[in-house]
Simulated scan of single mutants.
Amino acid sequence: MGVMAAAASAAGSDALVERGELKITQQEFSDFFEVAIPADARAEILQDETRLRRTLAEYYVLRQLDVEATEAGVDRDPVFVKQLNRQRSEMLARFYLAELARKRNPDLAKLAKERYIDKKASFAVPAEVDASHVLIAINDERDEKAALARAQEVLAKARKGEAFDKLAEEYSDDPSAKSNKGDLGFFQAERMVKPFADAAFALKNKGDLSEPVKSQFGYHVIRLNERKPGRQKSFEEVQAQIEEQIGTELSKTYIEEELNRVRGYDVKINDEALKAFQKQEAQAK
């Protein structure tokens, strides 16, 4: 009986899957879901029945192998026990440190507001433009003078009213022009090389055309399609983001402080026992 068939047989109870002695209850799967699935992925999985069923099926496989391994006595294998103890210590220590950090309970809202005021400029949204261009490359077959003349030809045709997208398809040496017809979409100034960005952002009105502008790629004729002015994000827009960032930073700081506290304990090492261990392990190898 497949996993989904087994799940169907459990209808009417709180069991999601039953097979022999193995029963996966809603609570068990919920616990697994909480600790194994990243928080930002849970909502997506819960809204997608196919993914939810696949997650349940994968958990069933894990649990079934757990049952079989236990029946085979693998849980009593000395190597497994050693690894389990080590992992338990690591997990317990990490959980303990996280809990100590959480109990510090800083006022994240207050700290976030202070950071927002101090670094307000970093929460500004830069201006963007949507522009199209025709690129005339300078290459072995076309020197700079010929490239400029061809760019001026394109500009003259555009000023006479020829469709800019058609000109881009016909003239542009930008490989993407065949698919985007020269339209680069919205971009911030920092995304483009400076001569191009300066010329594009200097255009004021929809449909404005630039004079040919030279960049490392050749000559560009640029058409402005639309502008989006820059704006300052409000504190409310970014509060959650800042609080999460500060919380992560403080948690790391607190954890490091706790680690240093324990590292600072006055611990005496038994040198003779350590040498005996060293010798014993070297001989065992």
Score class of each variant (00 low, 15 high):
44 E>T: 13
111 L>K: 10
28 E>T: 10
29 F>Y: 04
161 G>M: 06
270 N>K: 12
2 G>P: 15
64 Q>M: 12
284 A>Q: 11
279 K>F: 00
84 L>H: 12
30 S>N: 13
221 V>E: 10
185 G>K: 05
53 R>Y: 04
122 S>G: 06
155 L>N: 05
239 Q>Y: 04
165 D>F: 12
161 G>R: 02
41 A>D: 15
49 E>D: 15
20 G>S: 01
83 Q>M: 15
81 V>Q: 12
240 A>D: 14
177 A>E: 01
32 F>M: 03
258 E>L: 09
102 R>K: 13
112 A>Q: 05
110 K>M: 11
252 K>D: 13
34 E>F: 08
64 Q>V: 07
127 A>Q: 04
269 I>D: 07
53 R>P: 00
181 K>T: 05
137 A>K: 11
191 R>P: 00
149 A>L: 08
40 D>M: 07
99 E>F: 08
254 Y>H: 12
90 E>L: 15
35 V>F: 10
16 L>V: 12
149 A>R: 06
16 L>G: 05
131 A>L: 07
267 V>N: 01
253 T>Q: 14
103 K>R: 14
145 K>P: 02
180 N>Y: 02
91 M>I: 12
24 I>S: 07
41 A>E: 15
215 S>M: 05
183 D>V: 02
200 A>R: 03
136 I>W: 04
2 G>I: 15
171 Y>M: 04
145 K>M: 11
2 G>W: 14
249 E>A: 13
186 F>E: 10
43 A>C: 03
50 T>K: 13
116 Y>E: 02
217 F>I: 07
168 A>L: 06
181 K>H: 14
69 A>V: 00
160 K>L: 14
259 L>F: 03
183 D>S: 08
82 K>N: 12
139 N>M: 09
221 V>I: 15
10 A>C: 07
24 I>M: 13
28 E>P: 11
161 G>W: 07
219 Y>V: 11
142 R>V: 03
183 D>T: 00
39 A>G: 03
169 E>Y: 09
48 D>R: 00
284 A>G: 02
243 E>A: 00
16 L>I: 15
234 S>G: 13
274 L>T: 02
